[in-house]
Amino acid sequence: MADLSAFPIATRWPAKHPGQIQLYSAPTPNGVKVSIALEEIGLPYEPHYVNIGKDESWTPEFLSLNPNGKIPAIIDPDGPDGKPIGLFESGAILLYLAEKTGLLLPADAVRRYETIQWVFFQMAAVGPMFGQLGFFHKFAGREIADKRPLERYRDESRRLLGVLDSRLKGRKWIMGNDYTIADISLLGWVRNLIGFYEAGEIVGFKDFANVGAWLERGLARPAVQKGLTIPSRG
């Protein structure tokens, strides 16, 4: 039986199946990247719901795995050289899972790095911008009289949708016919933008037909449908 005693997080969220990958997450755009990838790959894993609304990601146990206090994070008891490894940052976890299994990432070096650059595009641009737009459009930002922050994030989000739309012209997925971690990294955020954040109208989402068609294809995948609900909110 795998020994997770070196990881304090396992004391707060005990493992029923310590030999499986342990996922500490919530069904947010960042969290579902990992659950979707795990479902697509088919690796056995045990999800643990981290209630970010109750600041559980800021507990000492969670911070012992991710000092930045953000979900998702994982422990793989069968890491490199068979040794357990703990990881945080969704993009890093996607890359780790893809390289561990040889799936969702092209083997060709040029296409591999091209895929990784689109994951970084999501991490550096799409996630932060869409998240800020969501704040200023739907949440506390509405109380701010100065609308310049909302307009800035709206315009930048629209620009990023244009970048993505251009990339998807004539392509089924970000990497053409290959469905990869680049798609997985972006699907939840685009879905959230027009769904949970209710920002489709203000960014003119209907203008980005390639993105809309790609999103529909992605959301139709069984692994995506399942991964979007994991971990259950209790």
Rank of each mutant, 00 (worst) to 15 (best):
Q132I: 11
Q117T: 15
W118N: 01
F120P: 02
M129H: 02
P106Y: 10
P128L: 13
E114Y: 05
H137L: 15
T115D: 04
I116P: 02
V119I: 14
F135E: 06
F136P: 00
A107T: 03
F120V: 15
Q132A: 14
R111N: 12
V119L: 15
L133M: 09
A125Y: 09
M129K: 07
K138C: 05
W118M: 06
V119A: 10
L133S: 04
P106N: 07
L105S: 00
W118A: 02
M129L: 15
A109W: 10
Y113D: 12
A125V: 03
K138T: 14
E114N: 14
P106D: 05
D108Y: 01
H137T: 10
F136S: 07
Q132Y: 10
V126P: 00
A125C: 12
A124H: 09
M123L: 14
E114F: 03
Q122S: 08
L133T: 13
G127V: 11
A124Q: 03
V110N: 11
Q132P: 04
A125K: 06
F121V: 15
L133Q: 05
P128W: 15
E114H: 13
Q117V: 08
Q122C: 09
P128Y: 12
Q132F: 08
P128E: 04
A107M: 08
K138F: 05
R112G: 05
D108A: 14
H137R: 10
A125E: 07
M129V: 14
K138D: 06
R111T: 11
Q117E: 13
E114W: 03
T115S: 04
F136D: 04
A107F: 03
D108G: 15
A107V: 02
A109G: 11
F136M: 06
M123W: 01
G127M: 04
V119N: 05
Q122N: 13
F136T: 08
I116Q: 09
E114P: 01
H137Y: 15
A107I: 00
H137F: 15
L105M: 08
L133N: 02
M123F: 03
L104P: 03
M129F: 02
A109N: 13
F135T: 10
G134R: 00
Q132E: 11
L133D: 06
F130P: 00
L105R: 00
F130H: 04
G131H: 11
K138V: 02
L105P: 01
F135P: 04
W118F: 13
G131D: 02
P106R: 08
